[in-house]
């Protein structure tokens, strides 16, 4: 099911994210998704996240679909040129995958194959433009498709707590002009920044899902502050995570923090996207505490 149908009905859309393993055994990934994520609307599958080579997003999406879940196929422009990207989009549509998320992708130098050639033939904006063309029955080369064109709910990302938020808003507008249907955001820990961002972003009239990471401890939060673009965990949350290590380790503190952020931001957005990073088991508790 296209998640845009739910946005159109005014529902608060909840999605979460799974990362494919570095190998071919995915039974545990599917089982975890079925156990903890079957109650939510859709499940994102990351595409060689952080430029680390893993099992493919498309194959994992198909496995989730077969297990009765509703996948969101993430595509980055780092590893494939326009021919391969369009081919994978057709393949996804053939499998019955209806939701996609278009990203530029991290640079190859950040991952586990730093010597790899970065492609970036297209970027997030021109990829959305390409999907729109395919949906109209024509490919990026101007050639007609044979038979039914694919149809997707087309998502993209934006970073509301970025230190260059004006440039992010400008890029967001380009994605809107290219034809995107919905947005998911980078992880938010500062509701006031998110609310200020949404005041400016609401002019675009596209649904936005608040990005959430459940912080696993003070060390992880500090790591994100130093290394992850657009993510900042404020000092009071760091102190909260550091105060009781056992509580933080058990996920109790992280879930409390994430639930507070969701509650504060909920009136300003149209859904939430949870990047559990292996803590899928805490998603049901988080949703319950956040009152969703």
């Amino acid at each position: 099911m296209k998640i845009t149908e739910l946005f159109d009905r005014g529902e608060f859309v909840v999605s979460a994210e799974v990362g494919p393993p570095k190998g071919i055994n995915i039974d545990h990934v599917i089982e975890e998704a079925k156990t903890y994520l079957s109650g939510i609307t859709a499940v994102n599958v990351t595409d060689n996240q952080s430029s680390v080579m893993r099992l493919g997003s498309l194959a994992t999406c198909k496995a989730l679909l077969d297990a009765g879940l509703n996948p969101i196929f993430q595509l980055t422009c780092r590893d494939r040129n326009r021919i391969a990207l369009q081919s994978d989009l057709l393949s996804a549509a053939m499998f019955g995958i209806e939701n996609i998320l278009c990203l530029t992708g991290d640079h190859t130098k950040l991952g586990d194959h730093p010597g790899a050639k970065p492609v970036f033939d297209l970027d997030s904006v021109s990829l959305i433009h390409t999907v729109k063309l395919l949906e109209s029955g024509v490919d990026l080369g101007g050639n007609a498709l044979v038979g039914d064109p694919p149809k997707f709910a087309k998502g993209a990302v934006v970073s509301p707590c970025s230190d260059s938020v004006d440039a992010q808003l400008a890029k967001m507008e380009r994605k809107v002009l290219a034809g995107v249907d919905y947005f998911q955001t980078q992880a938010v820990f500062e509701p006031e920044k998110f609310i200020a961002f949404m005041e400016k972003a609401k002019q675009f009239g596209k649904p936005v899902q608040l990005g959430i990471i459940i912080p696993k401890g003070a060390a992880m939060a500090r790591y994100m502050n130093n290394n992850v673009a657009g993510v900042h965990v404020p000092d009071d949350m760091l102190a909260e995570l550091a105060a009781d290590k056992e509580r933080a380790k058990a996920g109790i503190t992280g879930v409390e923090i994430a639930a507070r952020v969701i509650k504060a931001c909920r009136p300003y957005c149209q859904g939430v996207h949870i990047m559990a990073l292996g803590w899928e088991k805490h998603v049901p508790a988080l949703l319950e505490q956040a009152g969703i």
Partner: peptide, 16 residues
């Protein structure tokens, strides 16, 4: 731009 992007900033810049 290290990715030679022609449609705007990616999400990867930190502190400029």
């Amino acid at each position: 731009c290290s990715k030679s992007l022609v449609n705007g900033q990616c999400g990867g810049s930190k502190n400029g």
